[in-house]
Protein backbone atom coordinates (compact mmCIF):
# COMPACT_ATOMS: atom_id res chain seq x y z
CA UNK A 1 0.00 0.00 0.00
CA UNK A 2 2.84 2.30 0.99
CA UNK A 3 4.50 1.46 -2.32
CA UNK A 4 1.23 2.27 -4.09
CA UNK A 5 1.05 5.72 -2.60
CA UNK A 6 4.73 6.43 -3.15
CA UNK A 7 4.28 5.96 -6.87
CA UNK A 8 0.62 6.73 -7.45
CA UNK A 9 0.47 10.13 -5.79
CA UNK A 10 3.40 11.63 -7.72
CA UNK A 11 2.09 9.98 -10.91
CA UNK A 12 -1.37 11.43 -10.37
CA UNK A 13 0.24 14.79 -9.69
CA UNK A 14 2.12 14.60 -13.00
CA UNK A 15 -1.05 13.60 -14.86
CA UNK A 16 -3.09 16.40 -13.31
CA UNK A 17 -0.23 18.85 -13.75
CA UNK A 18 0.16 18.07 -17.45
CA UNK A 19 -3.59 18.33 -18.01
CA UNK A 20 -3.76 21.64 -16.17
CA UNK A 21 -0.76 23.11 -17.94
CA UNK A 22 -2.09 22.15 -21.37
CA UNK A 23 -5.57 23.39 -20.51
CA UNK A 24 -4.38 26.69 -19.08
CA UNK A 25 -1.98 27.32 -21.95
CA UNK A 26 -4.72 26.56 -24.50
CA UNK A 27 -7.23 28.73 -22.65
CA UNK A 28 -4.85 31.64 -22.21
CA UNK A 29 -3.09 31.48 -25.58
CA UNK A 30 -3.14 34.99 -27.02
CA UNK A 31 -6.15 35.56 -29.23
CA UNK A 32 -5.19 36.68 -32.72
CA UNK A 33 -6.06 40.27 -33.45
CA UNK A 34 -8.21 40.60 -36.57
CA UNK A 35 -7.10 43.05 -39.22
CA UNK A 36 -8.73 46.44 -39.43
CA UNK A 37 -12.30 46.79 -40.71
CA UNK A 38 -12.83 48.15 -44.21
CA UNK A 39 -14.10 51.64 -44.91
CA UNK A 40 -17.31 52.03 -46.94
CA UNK A 41 -15.23 53.10 -49.96
CA UNK A 42 -13.04 50.02 -49.63
CA UNK A 43 -16.10 47.79 -49.32
CA UNK A 44 -17.47 49.19 -52.57
CA UNK A 45 -14.10 48.79 -54.28
CA UNK A 46 -13.69 45.21 -53.06
CA UNK A 47 -17.20 44.27 -54.19
CA UNK A 48 -16.52 45.73 -57.62
CA UNK A 49 -13.19 43.88 -57.89
CA UNK A 50 -14.80 40.52 -57.17
CA UNK A 51 -17.81 41.21 -59.39
CA UNK A 52 -15.60 42.20 -62.31
CA UNK A 53 -13.93 38.78 -62.25
CA UNK A 54 -17.04 36.66 -62.04
CA UNK A 55 -17.81 36.46 -65.77
CA UNK A 56 -14.27 35.23 -66.51
CA UNK A 57 -14.44 32.70 -63.70
CA UNK A 58 -17.75 31.39 -65.02
CA UNK A 59 -16.25 30.84 -68.46
CA UNK A 60 -13.08 29.21 -67.20
CA UNK A 61 -14.88 26.87 -64.85
CA UNK A 62 -17.30 25.83 -67.59
CA UNK A 63 -14.27 24.76 -69.61
CA UNK A 64 -12.67 22.96 -66.66
CA UNK A 65 -15.82 21.02 -65.80
CA UNK A 66 -18.16 20.90 -68.79
CA UNK A 67 -21.67 19.69 -67.97
CA UNK A 68 -20.83 19.45 -64.25
CA UNK A 69 -22.64 22.26 -62.49
CA UNK A 70 -21.49 21.63 -58.92
CA UNK A 71 -17.82 21.26 -59.91
CA UNK A 72 -18.08 24.45 -61.97
CA UNK A 73 -19.53 26.35 -59.04
CA UNK A 74 -17.00 24.89 -56.62
CA UNK A 75 -14.16 25.89 -58.96
CA UNK A 76 -15.76 29.34 -59.17
CA UNK A 77 -15.68 29.61 -55.39
CA UNK A 78 -12.08 28.36 -55.33
CA UNK A 79 -11.14 31.29 -57.56
CA UNK A 80 -13.23 33.67 -55.50
CA UNK A 81 -11.47 32.40 -52.36
CA UNK A 82 -8.02 33.07 -53.80
CA UNK A 83 -9.04 36.53 -55.03
CA UNK A 84 -10.66 37.40 -51.70
CA UNK A 85 -7.53 36.37 -49.84
CA UNK A 86 -5.35 38.32 -52.24
CA UNK A 87 -7.44 41.46 -51.75
CA UNK A 88 -7.58 41.04 -47.97
CA UNK A 89 -3.81 40.59 -47.79
CA UNK A 90 -3.04 43.46 -50.14
CA UNK A 91 -5.27 45.93 -48.35
CA UNK A 92 -4.73 44.55 -44.86
CA UNK A 93 -8.45 43.92 -44.40
CA UNK A 94 -10.38 41.27 -42.53
CA UNK A 95 -11.47 38.49 -44.84
CA UNK A 96 -14.96 38.81 -43.35
CA UNK A 97 -15.19 42.36 -44.71
CA UNK A 98 -14.35 41.14 -48.19
CA UNK A 99 -17.04 38.48 -47.92
CA UNK A 100 -19.50 40.97 -46.43
CA UNK A 101 -18.84 43.40 -49.28
CA UNK A 102 -19.60 40.70 -51.85
CA UNK A 103 -22.71 39.55 -50.02
CA UNK A 104 -24.06 43.08 -49.58
CA UNK A 105 -23.37 43.79 -53.24
CA UNK A 106 -25.28 40.66 -54.26
CA UNK A 107 -28.15 41.50 -51.92
CA UNK A 108 -28.31 45.07 -53.26
CA UNK A 109 -30.25 43.80 -56.26
CA UNK A 110 -32.31 41.54 -54.05
CA UNK A 111 -34.38 38.81 -55.60
CA UNK A 112 -38.05 38.58 -54.66
CA UNK A 113 -38.50 34.93 -55.62
CA UNK A 114 -36.42 31.90 -56.57
CA UNK A 115 -37.32 32.43 -60.22
CA UNK A 116 -35.72 35.88 -60.51
CA UNK A 117 -32.71 36.21 -62.82
CA UNK A 118 -29.43 35.10 -61.29
CA UNK A 119 -26.58 37.11 -62.78
CA UNK A 120 -24.37 36.76 -59.71
CA UNK A 121 -24.55 32.97 -59.27
CA UNK A 122 -26.54 33.48 -56.07
CA UNK A 123 -28.78 30.46 -56.65
CA UNK A 124 -27.90 27.12 -55.08
CA UNK A 125 -26.20 24.34 -56.97
CA UNK A 126 -26.83 21.19 -54.91
CA UNK A 127 -23.66 19.58 -53.60
CA UNK A 128 -22.74 16.64 -55.79
CA UNK A 129 -19.15 15.67 -55.11
CA UNK A 130 -17.33 14.02 -57.97
CA UNK A 131 -17.16 10.23 -57.61
CA UNK A 132 -13.37 10.36 -57.58
CA UNK A 133 -10.64 12.94 -57.64
CA UNK A 134 -7.77 10.85 -59.06
Amino acid sequence: MAMDLRTSIPAAAVLIGCTLVVTVRAALAPAPVPRRPATPAELAEVAAMIASNERTWTTETAQNFPADRWSQRDDFHGREYRKAQEIANEKGLRIEDVLRAVDDDIHRRAARSPDDTDERSAGAIPCKPRPFYD
Binding site: R73, D74, H77, D103, I106, H107, R109, A110, A111, R112, P114, D116, D118, R120, A122, G123, A124, I125, P126, C127, K128, P129
Partner: peptide, 20 residues
Protein backbone atom coordinates in the same frame (compact mmCIF):
# COMPACT_ATOMS: atom_id res chain seq x y z
CA UNK B 1 -25.02 28.08 -49.93
CA UNK B 2 -21.69 27.07 -51.41
CA UNK B 3 -21.54 23.52 -50.17
CA UNK B 4 -19.00 20.73 -50.16
CA UNK B 5 -19.57 17.50 -48.31
CA UNK B 6 -18.42 13.93 -48.73
CA UNK B 7 -21.89 12.88 -49.83
CA UNK B 8 -24.39 14.54 -52.20
CA UNK B 9 -26.42 16.92 -50.04
CA UNK B 10 -30.11 17.24 -50.78
CA UNK B 11 -30.37 20.96 -51.46
CA UNK B 12 -33.28 22.81 -52.95
CA UNK B 13 -32.49 24.44 -56.29
CA UNK B 14 -34.83 27.24 -55.12
CA UNK B 15 -32.45 28.42 -52.41
CA UNK B 16 -31.12 31.91 -53.05
CA UNK B 17 -28.28 33.91 -51.58
CA UNK B 18 -29.76 37.25 -52.65
CA UNK B 19 -33.33 37.32 -51.34
CA UNK B 20 -34.90 40.49 -49.99
Amino acid sequence: LSCWETHPVTMSPKLRGDLA
